[in-house]
Nucleic acid binder design. Structure first.
Lengths: 254, 254
DNA sequence: GAAGACAATGTTGTCAACAATAAAACGTTT
DNA sequence: AAACGTTTTATTGTTGACAACATTGTCTTC
């Protein structure tokens, strides 16, 4: 019976190095596909063929299949019986539903983050939103703005220290990423968002969790309102850019 | 090219009947396993062998594998490289994390449900919580109480009409189900819960979404507080029943 | 008698071939 | 020329065998 104990020890020692190495390829493939879907490199409704991906990435078809299973659970693709996998097409109502969810989840995230960390630790974020981010908005450099926002968001999630919450936020954020890129170019949205983020950060900087949650929620809700207002232009994309410009003029000058 | 059109029409006609029939076996297996895990028929840390399930249910091993993938995504099992799948073991901190989530999600659910339905439609629930449920609590019939609560909860989710929210609530509820069965037997918890549910229902009955959300959140939070108070007894189960009884006496008479 | 190497066993991961299905193309009939 | 049934093709779903791996038990050595 001593051998058993000994073996158990050996296992403990070995179990660490391999932990991360496993499904590596599978995770890689999943990440690539999630990115492609988020950036709409594969259009909504587009097909994903098993063999195609299998050969492209040099992984067994069974692995592609598993990745499909994971993506299906995340709600990014839909698998129909003998027809294969297609990227899900978000309709308007679903987007609003997701915004309702983001409202409460991001709110909770802000509250937890404020509770779990010292007020001073947010100073660098305050600085970022005072300086660089303001520049990005003025210049219309939305990519940099989004990148900065991404950093802020990840800091919040990390500080909240709630893995399940983190998973949920990830899974719905990637669904709306395509939409966000269209909202942010709307007239005044970036400026509005900037000041809202500053308000949230101010509450966090002074260590007020409840207020941070409340402000984050109104932030999300205003994003939803923007979407509601300009929904036609956001959803039907490039074809309506001209009409959008006309509407902006009417909105600003009218 | 007319043939193409014709075929397309044929497809539309046929596509309905088969939609639900597909992954039926897979979904079946998934449901069975989720139930077993929720009811702790498979203990936390227990192994799930692919071949074993494959033969037991008469399904191909690949299907078992897919189900495992889905369960892993839901966070019910964990798959380690070449060792197989084990039921995840919830530690205390995770349970509290999940309660934070339930607080905001069930709150949102109550708000949406109130917004989307007429106040009168909740009358039957009010009646249930006034009459039968009170009886169950008095008799200590916790199974019936839980069943009634389950009905209420499903009505809320259905009325909220937000599929993504529904999915999230399901996925975290089944994780806590085992815990809930231990909380409800705590001194005074069922009575407390009953009056809180009544308060939520009253707000819904008079069509006040914000108040319904607020009350539902305090309801969840009080559940969390109960858990925090009696955590030692809840987590370590039967072995501490005697100590629990002693504590109840101290709590009630002391 | 304990420590380490080594083979034995069972389980998962991978792969390739086959069957089932659905969409499309084709040909026939009216 | 349109409607219908049949065949063809492409793709997924399934099956079984095999390889890789981890764990356990045994054996040798000190």
């Amino acid at each position: 019976m001593t051998t058993q104990l000994k073996n158990a020890i050996k296992v403990k020692q070995r179990s660490k190095k391999k932990d991360g190495a496993r499904g590596k390829r599978g995770i890689d493939l999943q990440m690539v596909l999630r990115e492609r879907i988020a950036k709409q490199e594969i259009a909504p409704g587009g097909k994903l063929r098993e063999q195609e991906l299998s050969t492209e990435f040099g992984v067994p078809r069974a692995l592609v299949r598993e990745v499909f299973c994971a993506l299906e659970q995340r709600g990014l693709i839909e698998r129909i019986p003998n027809r294969g996998a297609v990227v899900v097409r978000l309709d308007l109502s679903q987007v609003f539903e997701i915004y309702d969810l983001r409202e409460v989840l991001e709110g909770l995230c802000a509250r937890l983050a404020t509770q779990n960390s010292s007020p001073e630790s947010w100073q660098d974020m305050v600085d970022m939103f005072e300086g660089p981010m303001e520049e990005y908005v003025k210049r219309g450099d939305y990519e940099s703005f989004l990148a900065g926002y991404g950093v802020f968001r990840r800091r919040l999630i990390e500080a909240a220290a709630n893995p399940v919450l983190a998973g949920m936020l990830d899974s719905i954020y990637e669904k709306t990423q395509a939409i966000i890129r269209r909202i942010i170019i709307l007239p005044g949205r970036a400026e509005h968002g900037l000041s809202e983020h500053r308000a949230v950060l101010a509450a966090m900087r002074r260590g007020d969790p409840e207020e941070a949650e409340r402000l984050r929620r109104t932030n999300m809700r205003s994003g939803k309102d923007y979407l509601k207002r300009y929904q036609n232009f956001v959803l039907f994309g490039v074809s309506s850019q001209l009409r959008l410009l006309a509407m902006i003029r009417a909105d600003v000058f009218g």
